Simulated assay, not measured.
Amino acid sequence: MRTERHGVHHHLPPPGGWRRHVARLPVSLFRIGLGPVLGRRLLLLHHTARADGHIHHTVLETLTYDAERGCWILASSADAPWYLDLLAAPMTTVQVGNHHYAVTAHFPDAGEAAEIVGRHGTGGRRRPRRACPVGRMAENADARTSGRAGKPPTLVRLDAARGQRLP
C-alpha cells in the first residue's frame, strides 16, 4: 500500500489507534522528564516541518555518538519526514536524557558515509548488528542496498554547537 503525505510516497500508512499511542510513548517519556530511562542511544529530535512550520518531535536511535567531535550519527531512509525536514532546516535541537543541545545537521555523501560506518562500525562486538543495515555500507557503499525501496540508508551527522557541555 502506498500513501502520500507531505508530497512523499510512503509504503506503510502511519499507525492508528492504540498503535499510535505506543509509537508515541517515547516522546511522552522525554517530555515528562524520563529521558534517562530510555538510555543514551535514543534522542528526541525537535524539527520544523517544511510544510507548515510547526515543531515536530521524533525519537530516534543513534548509530553512534562521537564524544571527541561532539556529534551524533543517525541513519534514515531518504523519504523519512524528519530527514526531509532537516534538509529544509538543518539547525535544530536534540534532547539526550534531560539535556538539550543545539545541533546542525550535515548529510555525508556515500564515501564519507562509508568512512563513518567503517570507523564506528568496529567499536564493539554487538555494534555491527545494531548498526545493521548501515554496517554493510562500509563493505561497498555503491553496491549494497537495503530497505523497502532498495535504496541504501542515508546518514545524518548532528554536530553540537560550540560551547556546550556535552555528555
Rank of each mutant, 00 (worst) to 15 (best):
E112P: 00
P108L: 09
G163V: 01
L34A: 14
A89C: 04
P90Q: 10
H47Y: 10
T93A: 15
R136L: 15
M1Q: 07
L42G: 02
R41I: 06
L84M: 08
I73D: 03
G124C: 11
A67P: 01
I32A: 07
V27P: 00
L45I: 03
V8K: 05
V37Q: 06
E61L: 08
E4Y: 01
E115P: 00
D79I: 06
K151Q: 15
L44T: 05
Y65A: 05
A141T: 09
H57C: 06
A51H: 07
V134C: 07
V8T: 14
A149I: 00
T145D: 11
D85S: 11
R41Q: 12
V59E: 08
G17E: 09
G147C: 07
E4A: 06
D109E: 14
H21M: 14
V27H: 11
R129F: 15
R69A: 15
S28F: 09
G53Q: 08
A78M: 06
S146G: 13
G17M: 10
T62P: 00
V134E: 03
V59S: 07
T104F: 02
L60W: 02
H120Q: 09
Y65S: 05
A75E: 04
P15N: 11
G16K: 10
N140R: 14
R69Y: 01
A143M: 08
L84A: 06
H99D: 13
T64N: 08
L158Q: 02
A105R: 02
E68W: 01
F107D: 02
T93E: 15
G53P: 00
N98R: 14
I55Q: 14
S77N: 12
A80I: 02
L87D: 03
P14A: 14
L45T: 04
V94Y: 04
F30C: 06
G33Y: 10
V117Y: 02
A114D: 03
G53I: 03
A80H: 05
A131H: 12
L12Q: 10
H46V: 07
D159T: 13
T93H: 12
I32L: 13
Q164I: 05
G123K: 11
L63V: 01
S28W: 13
P108K: 07
H120P: 02
R136V: 10
T64K: 01
V96T: 05
A49F: 01
A88I: 00
Q95R: 14
A113F: 02
R2F: 08
T62A: 14
V59A: 09
I55Y: 00
R148M: 13
T145A: 13
R130V: 04
Y101D: 03
T92N: 08
G7I: 05
G124Q: 12
D79R: 08
D159C: 06
E115Q: 10
Y101E: 05
G7E: 10
V59T: 12
L74G: 03
R125E: 11
V22I: 13
A114E: 06
A149N: 05
Y83P: 00
R2W: 07
R20N: 04
V59W: 02
S28T: 12
N140Y: 05
G33L: 09
E112G: 00
V134N: 01
